[in-house]
Nucleic acid binder design. Structure first.
Lengths: 345, 345
DNA sequence: CACCAAATTGGAAGCGCTCCCAAAAGGTAG
DNA sequence: CTACCTTTTGGGAGCGCTTCCAATTTGGTG
């Protein structure tokens, strides 16, 4: 390894090219190219000489030139169909973005983060994507979103969906957590803790996450499930509060509450406290996501932690396979979540 | 404007190049280049013909080729010297990242988000940056950070600091909010609301934000400032709680509290409640940042909203000037914050 | 109408890389 | 030692753009 000191003030010299390396190593340009692209079909001795020259010169590949020659753009789009300003409040989004960026940087590529808030944005985005500005796309869909999906499917652009794309489960590649199983786990835990009435504040039921978390809850509760104690929310803090107020009106003796996201759970706890209930003594509460809100709220939430990072890595791996041309049948992957016990239940 | 329908399924055809446009418009390649780069020194009639050809073909410039020809990389680094996992919990970071990305996308460029957690990462990052992988850098420093700053200063890489770089105020370009003035504003408001003892939980005093917010507080309180009612925190929820517990021990009759960040304020409110104090009846609390935590906590926080988006845009503008070669004297810019009244004070 | 300067134009050269092909080197078997 | 096959190697061509510079056109003037 050569330190920056040894090679002087790098910035003041012309950046070395592949030809400089070839000259110094006494080989042809093609050979250097082969070495920096895996070193296959190059004699070990030659490879070492080339690597040494690379170190001495402090050479690193010019991505623009590589992309131009390869006919690639060197960037991947991460598309979120949600209101942009909500975006960064969603802790999952941040972790996804961070994991993608980091991973792509390792291969000299970039992540392009984009929202598609309304139909117009969606159309221009569709054009943009289909027209070769990116090598592939990762779709974080917050609602069911056929138009963009169909558009992309027709465009041949490789892409992978994060989460289960309702209605396209069999046609597309996707990576998702098992919402139903996760909800089953946390609600079973809750049901084991308390006797009496258990209610739930759901996510939006037009999303697969919202729906499956409710399914898991229903399954876990079995006979104890009460259809009248289901309030539907929209992932927002406010909807968590209002949903809880509704449930409390319907069943003042409420003992347990499954809230389909931590943020909504924060709202729920606020509503419970306002109604004079202690958590978890009077009403036990469990959330979902293990987001920052989970520990910000008092008492800290018992919740489900999702393997976001793993989801991201797998999605990217699958996408890379498809970009490389292994465009066989769609690939589907389901990962499981983990119960995190804190003090709210 | 040509819709995607008119030009057929774009994805299946070869992407048009500048030569295709030149041929269709009946002009030379150079002329097309001139048109897509501002259209200077091109006769209006010719310019229109070229633009029409561009529309018909659905041409858009190939960034890799442009970057290669221009000797630019087409990316800007956003560097944060903080623990990566805290990163996305910081609401300002998210807004910065989003504003940068969006703005850069407009000019076909990319944002590269990077952390520099320890000295080693910092060194390799320094090499990376100095070696021409990016066109410029935006530095979000959470602590005073001389090594990287000096390294970059020596490297000729254009960069702009977000926040005031302690010890480098005169040597570098930076954009910051006026922490002192903002703290003065919110503490004055608090002081007008309550009589009696007012304390503060500060940010880390080795950062300019931490220090200046304390200065502003001291200034606003004047004679009422009590040096014994200053607890130092580190921006974390926990430090907010612990600092508040300390203040309460020193002054059980505490009536007002300025907490230097909303997240810490959430911890403070938890501590106050645990100690049996009502907010704002017994103790009025004000925060700083207007982050998501401000409305998540109960009661919602009175706090200062910072012009993050404007800061981001100005920083990028200054950076672009410097990249373009207008590397005159360093540029400094200070923006003001705005009081947001809610129910905590 | 001739002349000149300024504005406009075309296209060659070159950015740094990958991909490919032909040539050279190396191995193996008879 | 030769013939043949495989592996390795060098370097030309080309990716799509910008940046010149030289050539042409334009427009104004005497």
């Amino acid at each position: 390894m050569v330190t920056s000191a040894e090679r002087g003030d790098a910035s003041s010299r012309r950046r070395p090219t592949i030809d400089d390396v070839a000259r110094l190593a006494g080989v042809g340009r093609g050979t250097v190219s082969r070495v920096i692209n895996g070193g296959h079909n190059v004699r070990p001795a030659v490879r070492d000489a080339v690597n040494q020259a690379i170190d001495i010169l402090g050479y690193s590949v010019n991505q623009s030139a590589r992309n131009l020659a390869r006919g690639r753009t060197g960037s991947i789009a991460y598309i979120i169909s949600d209101r942009g300003d909500r975006l960064f409040e969603d802790p999952n989004f941040g972790l996804f973005a961070r994991t993608f960026s980091r991973q792509l940087r390792g291969s000299g590529r970039h992540l392009l983060i984009t929202t598609a808030e309304d139909e117009e944005e969606e159309n221009s985005l569709g054009d943009y994507l289909a027209f070769g500005h990116v090598d592939g796309a990762l779709l974080g869909l917050t609602r069911d979103h056929e138009p963009l999906l169909q558009r992309l499917q027709a465009s041949r652009l490789p892409f992978v969906v994060l989460g289960k794309p309702l209605g396209f489960e069999n046609a597309l590649s996707w990576v998702a957590i098992d919402d139903e199983k996760a909800a089953f786990t946390v609600v079973s835990y809750l049901a084991g803790k308390v006797d009496g009435a258990i209610g739930t504040v759901t996510g939006p039921l037009h999303t697969s996450s919202g729906r499956e978390r409710l399914d898991g809850c229903r399954l876990a509760l079995g006979d104890r499930f009460r259809p009248d104690l289901v309030a539907s929310g929209d992932w927002s803090l406010r909807s968590g509060r209002e949903g809880t107020e509704l449930l409390l009106r319907r069943e003042p003796g409420l003992r347990g509450l499954f809230v389909a996201s931590d943020l909504m759970a924060a709202g729920a706890i606020g509503a419970l406290r306002a109604a004079g209930r202690r958590v978890p003594e009077d009403v036990a509460v469990v959330g979902f996501d293990d987001s920052a809100a989970a520990t910000m709220v008092d008492p800290a939430l018992t919740t489900m932690r999702n393997p976001i990072e793993q989801t991201a890595l797998e999605a990217l791996r699958i996408l890379d396979e498809r970009i490389a041309g292994d465009a066989g049948a769609p690939v589907r992957l389901v990962l499981s979540s983990e119960l995190v016990k804190r003090s709210s239940a």
